[in-house]
Design a protein around this nucleic acid. Structure first.
Lengths: 129, 129
DNA sequence: GGCGCAGGTTTACAATCGTAGTCATTGCGG
DNA sequence: CCGCAATGACTACGATTGTAAACCTGCGCC
């Protein structure tokens, strides 16, 4: 194995993920617009954005549609899928697939605000019903 | 910036993490013993393990103590610290630092077993008290 | 007492990643 | 109608990662 090339399967890197966030937020948009959205924040130049976009297109995480003679980009994978996958990966890798220890960990490291607690309680009630 | 060399600060990679898990499980142990523990599972050879161990030593994630004329390795960072850091990174990157959405995500992707739910409920009660 | 073996150190090397420059094209403003 | 600016494609290049071989050294065995 080692190389899954199944559909939208290649892993998305950190920098690429930043691009994805922009696209999830607003799409379809042009490379220039993507840059407008993050170049300042991440201190990137347009070429960098273009490279990342191409790589995402290769990985089939992003699709293009011609608009005039330029491209508009749009995500091909849903944010919830990505986020779900990454979360699961973490839980699998660090907590043997069990979510409770993750929760305990976050609790212990004080990464849980009161708001979080309330929301989670609410969710729990929802699910338990 | 770009290169934090603060204390035990360099990022630990996936493969390196596998080594760490072995060390957290049992330490101090020799390179050979580490290999005994994972070489089969990950299909690695001794040289690979040695390389990863050296890198971890460089990164100050693992310490050595001479035993006879060989080394015994032991982790220098606590598993809970690593796990906490990684969890937080994920929560920051994907959920804007809020844990509740992570929880919701796991719930939605059915990554939560009934046991998880019960445990989390228990934890919640604990914390709320 | 020389040799192989265990074990650490160095070197290797391809793939991915972060970051960006160069090149080619083409439509637009003048 | 022509050069320029925008834009996508290609190239670059150092760092990290995964994976491992080559090498060196000293200890124990024959």
């Amino acid at each position: 194995m080692a190389k899954r090339s199944n559909g939208p399967g290649e892993r998305i890197s950190e920098a690429e993920h930043a691009i994805m966030e922009v696209l999830w937020d607003r799409n379809p948009i042009s490379a220039a617009e993507v840059c407008d959205a993050i170049c300042a924040e991440r201190d990137w130049s347009i070429p960098t954005v273009k490279t990342l976009l191409s790589r995402l297109v290769q990985k089939q995480a992003v699709g293009t549609e011609p608009e005039g003679r330029k491209f508009l980009y749009r995500p091909l994978i849903a944010r919830s899928d990505y986020v779900g996958g990454e979360s699961r990966r973490l839980v699998d890798r660090l907590f043997g697939g069990r979510a409770a220890p993750l929760f305990a960990q976050l609790a212990e490291s004080e990464a849980l605000t009161d708001d979080d607690l309330s929301e989670i309680e609410a969710l729990l009630r929802e699910m338990r019903k």
